[in-house]
Design a protein around this nucleic acid. Structure first.
Lengths: 137, 137
DNA sequence: TTTCATGCAAATGATTTGCATAGTC
DNA sequence: GACTATGCAAATCATTTGCATGAAA
């Protein structure tokens, strides 16, 4: 079901601001910080307020239209397509590489079996050292 | 090697504040937020300043004496013992359950093989639904 | 026309910073 | 005694909130 349908079905109003914010997140192939969304939105539609964007992002996360995560103390978002989106972030050079595999299936299974916990690894920022920085160190 | 030795060896000074902060993190069997460290430290040694604590926590993380993580936009810390410390946090009730297993060994292996990336899963907050909340939902 | 969303401006709250003083080595 | 760490107070900076106005259903 499309996000637009979800918004309507849940009784929320479909405003141009919300459409644009959705578009921006869907266009981006990797995660974006809330602040990046603010800049991107304001580039296309000047005058849209930060508060609106923060509120919309929170709403979209709540109704499952986007996936929220956090990195370096900031909120990050990406679209909630089926599948997985993980990011490997090098603690030395700061570069990130995306990874769309279902990396955590076995972990999810183990946690469910042992603790009955249903882990949700939809959007994980994995910290570590990239191959280049490993060599340099 | 003990943290106290590490501090000295790296040329940092061993102050009562630093000792106390180290103690507090080592006494805690789960992670603590920076703010919790502030309260705990000030309970035992009133007058110690927030800045000192934040600076010390950052230092301790840098020299590997504690492990820093983040949850809900705040910094969390625990001692850097050998082994693993993960936390399952329920997004419904907010409860967390600790898990000291080496959950991510297979993921680490896979990422290294495919991307040469050395993932560091020392202290992960795993979000999801606990068994109780799964039933309620 | 009712209700929800937006814009604005100000508040929040964790974390950081500059600087003078105090404490370690 | 040299140099670092601390305390203090103020600054930061992302995010949130209250409220009056504007737009969607």
């Amino acid at each position: 079901m499309s996000c637009i349908t979800t918004i309507k079905e849940r009784g929320f109003k479909l405003t141009p601001q919300r459409r644009l914010i959705l578009d921006i997140i869907h266009e981006s192939d990797t995660h974006v910080t809330a602040e990046e969304v603010v800049s991107l939105v304001q580039a296309k539609m000047p005058g849209v307020n930060k508060s609106t964007i923060y509120r919309t992002l929170e709403l979209l996360d709540e109704i499952g239209c986007v996936v929220k995560g956090e990195s370096h103390g900031r909120s990050i978002y990406h679209h909630a397509e089926e599948g997985h989106h993980h990011h490997m972030e090098c603690r030395a050079c700061g570069n990130t590489v995306d990874c769309s595999e279902d990396l955590f299936a076995s972990v999810e299974k183990a946690l469910h079996k042992k603790y009955g916990f249903r882990a949700e690894f939809k959007h994980t920022v994995i910290k570590g050292l990239c191959s280049q920085c490993r060599i340099r160190m």
